[in-house]
């Protein structure tokens, strides 16, 4: 027994040390920092001045931050709807007894293993490119010269171009999660309902969807976590440093705290911490809300 206790301690210590150094302490310090006025990120705690919720109030007044929140909300809501619909659709198709399931699944997931820098550049410099771009060629082939002449990454279109390209890369991951949920549903359910005369759409709404509740929750949570960290895509689609069309909270934080020599914003690292806490709380909020709204039935199979 004694031997076991030593083993537990030795085996857990490295993981726990890292967990405290990388997660517990930084989270606590970020929360603290958001309540203080901190001139520089590197300022030591003794130089902080307590200001309560002033940073949050300031953030709420900052138009750049509000714009960034609006952008991330649209990416989360509209992009989320698109990604989840496509992911569910593909998952259902893949599990409908189709041939080459593994091949199709692998191709749909492929964009998820590509570095965001590479994937965003592919979209930006090929699909949306004005001269040799895929969309230009495609629409002129269809004879739709108006659409072919569209500047996809011009000011008015850029945000949706960005959202759409991002969604393309995200479908695969959520498709896999839906798919693993569907695979767990026993075949007998469908067979029995077929004998009772249920149509395919009926089976989808009355068997598949209700049994996917847990998976839907996972998907929404994961989508929220990745949305909150939206950064690289935005950077690649920006033409200037503070691009209102593409700014997201994480970009705002980066500009506020790490960008050297920008004169746009006052130096206040506490604001950056408040951005972090706000985003963290949003993840928690979405998690709690989905758990309240989607009640999972206790089913064992």
């Amino acid at each position: 027994m004694k031997q076991n206790r030593t083993m537990v301690v030795i085996f857990l210590t490295p993981a726990l040390l890292l967990f405290f150094a990388i997660f517990v302490y930084p989270i606590a310090r970020t929360v603290m920092m958001s309540l203080f006025s901190v001139e520089n990120v590197t300022s030591s705690v003794s130089e902080w001045t307590f200001t309560g919720f002033k940073n949050y109030a300031d953030l709420a007044q900052t138009s750049l931050f509000r714009k960034s929140m609006w952008n991330i909300f649209r990416i989360w809501a509209v992009g989320g709807l698109v990604v989840m619909s496509l992911a569910l659709l593909f998952a259902v198709i893949l599990n409908s007894g189709i041939r080459f399931k593994k091949f199709f699944r692998a191709v749909i997931y492929l964009p998820n293993i590509i570095s965001a820098v590479a994937l965003a550049t592919m979209w930006l410099q090929y699909v949306y490119a004005p001269r040799w771009g895929f969309l230009t060629d495609f629409f002129s082939w269809l004879g739709l010269e108006d659409l072919a002449a569209t500047q996809w990454t011009a000011a008015g279109n850029k945000f949706w171009a960005l959202t759409f390209a991002y969604c393309f890369g995200m479908v695969g991951y959520h498709m896999l999660i839906f798919s693993s949920g569907i695979e767990k549903i026993p075949h007998e359910f469908y067979e029995a309902s077929s004998i009772d005369g249920a149509s395919k759409p009926r089976q989808f709404t009355n068997i598949t969807l209700p049994l996917l509740k847990g998976v839907v929750k996972t998907n929404i949570t994961m989508w929220t976590i990745t949305s909150v960290g939206f950064f690289v895509w935005s950077q690649l689609f920006s033409t200037v440093t503070t691009d209102l069309d593409t700014i997201t909270p994480m970009v705002y934080l980066y500009l506020q705290v790490f960008s050297t020599g920008n004169t746009v914003m006052e130096r206040e690292a506490g604001l950056g911490a408040a951005v972090g806490v706000t985003l963290g709380l949003l993840v928690v909020l979405v998690f709690v809300l989905t758990n309240l709204l989607i009640r999972e039935d206790e089913i064992e199979y």
Binding site: P26, I27, T30, T42, G229, M250, A269, G280
Partner: peptide, 17 residues
């Protein structure tokens, strides 16, 4: 599920110190 934004600032502060 913790986003990087929640941990990046203190990590940077400590690392610089």
């Amino acid at each position: 599920g913790v986003p990087v934004v929640m941990i990046i600032l203190p990590l940077f502060a400590v690392v610089t110190q």
